[in-house]
Amino acid sequence: MNFESFETRVLPTKNKLFRFAFRLLGSQEEARDVVQEVMIKVWNGREQWATIENMEAWCMRITKNLSLDRLRSKQRKITDPIEDGFEIRQEGLTPQERTELDESMVQINELMTALPDKQRQVMHLRDIEGYSYNEICEILELDMSQVKVNLFRARNAVREKLVKLNAYGLS
């Protein structure tokens, strides 16, 4: 339980923690603050490290809790979910194609933001971060059936809306 294992096991999770916090809070600035808070908290609780099986899932769980605390304490809504998180650098695309791609990314992001909290969280952890169902259960403190139901609803809601959006050209 020392500084080296903190460097090898905790610090490298920073981007995953950041993306998850950003998904929940909708602000990069606040997400960064939360990640820093999480790391300090994990470091201060280093006596418990021996009992933690999956350090990354543990960090993600703390990130979720601290982010939700923040949301609750401020009673705030995600006001600007798209911010500047879409640094899409696709080589070999014309400006026209790139703009289209950017637009579709913004659209999908809005669809995801519009999902209920649990669905959004599960979808983020599975489809973006690629966590196993067991890990998602651990992070979100949910049981397997809840995770699966939420993921099913999230995927199908996004799919339906996406098809509609493109079919009617509402973009």
């Binding site: 820093q36 998180g85 579709s104 999908i108 489809d127 973006i128 971060e129 996406l162």
Partner: peptide, 30 residues
Amino acid sequence: ETAQLFRYFEEQQKLSVGQSNFEAEVKKKI
């Protein structure tokens, strides 16, 4: 549309904390 969704997932995974001295700052704090 399906392709857009999967590309979105992949793009989102590239997002990073975006602050070059982030780790140093955390280390300094702890």
